[in-house]
Every structure is written in structure tokens, then in C-alpha cells.
Design a protein around this nucleic acid. Structure first.
Length: 211
DNA sequence: GACCAGGCACATC
DNA sequence: GATGTGCATGGT
């Protein structure tokens, strides 16, 4: 069997469904996707919970507060000055082009959405793909550092391989299915966090060890 | 105290 | 086109 498929079935058997994205609404997911850039998710949760506690988890409300207030709210997520700017920038586009409506945004097809999101400063490939898959429920495979690390340790790619090339490995092997792409990426993050550390090539307890 | 975390834009060569 | 750097908090 193809190794990409084998990895998935092994992970799914070991850990089951991951119930991603850990956020209650598409808007929360989009905000989380920006806040989690190079950041531990626990820190992002604190930032999001600050936003929720002030009842600001809404594109218009969040865009109406001052940059300074936004910085304070998202401080726990790190890079807070930078991310405040990125959030504001994204919100302005989201409001101007879609009236702050997820449903309007979903009318664009997947590739148009990707081009659109990538044209926004502060949204790169992984963030764009995360939004498309997890907030807008369109099938696209999300490639992150864990995906790279795990695939390279299984000799499927080299470290630092091109994003779209890695993505195409999944797109060319798997059926185009939102639920499948959702679970697969989530499972890769799970074992990445648990077994596949940056500076320790051995992952003895990893269920993928003998693949 | 060092190292890491679900990236990205920008500078420089 | 590849490689390096700033951005920042909080957990291990």
C-alpha cells in the first residue's frame, strides 16, 4: 500500500478522530489560524478566550477596537504587535469584500479563495489552507512543520521541500475529501507534538516507527 | 537558562 | 532562488 495511505490508516487506528479545528465557529477558526502562526496552541487559547470574554468574537466588533486594545487581548499568543496588525488587516478585507460573512466567502471556489487569502499580507500558505479547510470546509491539504518533519523522517521528502510539492503528494494520493484532509492533518499534528520533536530524530513510541 | 511552538514578510547575497 | 532575521509569550 502507498505509504501516505498507510501512515493515515495507522494513525487513525491508533488515535481515532481528532475533532478539529478546536474552535466553535468558522470565524473563531480564522482568527485562531492567524494567532497560531509559529505559536503553541495553548497560548492561542488564552488570547481567544480574552477576546471571547469581552464579547468581541465578531468581525465588526473586533475590527472596531483600537490596535492597542487588540494587542493587549492577544498578548499571550506572542508576536502580539505583529499579529494585531495581521488580524486588523485581515478583518478589513473580510469586511470590505465579504461583508464579514463566511457564507459569502464560501461562494468562491477553492483556488480563487487561496489566491485571495495569499494576497492578504500576513496570510501565508499554511494559514490560507487552514482557513480554507477548517473554516470554509473546502478540501485542501494543510502542510505544516510537523507534516514536513514526519514525511522527511520517513524519507518521503527532503527537509525544507517546497510547500506545493508536499501538498501535491497528498492531493495526488488521497481522494479529495474534506473530512479525510481534516483528520489527516490533525493526526500529523498530534503525533508531531507527542513523538516527533525537533532535535531528537528518534521517536521510539511513535506508531509510525515500523512503517 | 535553553529550547521550542500548528509562520510570515522582508533583507541580503 | 536560497538563506538569514525579526517578531514575543509561555511551557518543559
Amino acid at each position: 500500500m502507498n505509504k501516505i495511505i498507510k501512515i493515515y490508516t495507522t494513525l487513525y487506528k491508533s488515535f481515532g478522530p481528532q475533532h478539529w479545528w478546536p474552535g466553535e465557529t468558522p470565524f473563531e477558526i480564522m482568527i485562531g489560524a492567524i494567532l497560531t502562526q509559529n505559536t503553541n496552541w495553548k497560548n492561542v487559547e488564552k488570547a481567544i478566550s480574552n477576546i471571547k470574554n469581552k464579547d468581541l468574537l465578531d468581525p465588526f466588533k473586533l475590527n472596531s477596537i483600537s490596535n492597542n486594545e487588540l494587542q493587549t487581548l492577544i498578548k499571550p499568543s506572542g508576536f502580539y504587535r505583529l499579529k494585531a496588525k495581521r488580524l486588523k488587516n485581515f478583518l478589513e478585507y473580510f469586511i470590505k469584500d465579504f461583508n464579514g460573512s463566511i457564507e459569502n466567502m464560501k461562494k468562491l471556489d477553492r483556488d480563487k479563495l487561496r489566491d485571495y487569502l495569499l494576497s492578504i499580507k500576513g496570510i501565508g500558505k499554511e494559514t490560507a489552507d487552514s482557513i480554507i479547510l477548517y473554516a470554509l470546509s473546502k478540501a485542501i491539504f494543510v502542510v505544516d512543520t510537523y507534516t514536513q518533519r514526519i514525511l522527511s523522517r520517513h524519507n518521503l521528502i527532503k527537509l525544507g521541500e517546497d510547500y506545493e510539492l508536499i501538498q501535491s503528494i497528498f492531493h495526488n494520493t488521497l481522494p479529495e475529501n474534506v473530512k479525510l484532509f481534516n483528520e489527516y492533518h490533525a493526526l500529523l499534528v498530534k503525533i508531531g507534538k507527542e513523538f516527533c520533536f525537533k532535535n531528537s530524530p528518534l521517536c521510539d513510541k511513535c506508531p509510525l516507527k515500523h512503517l
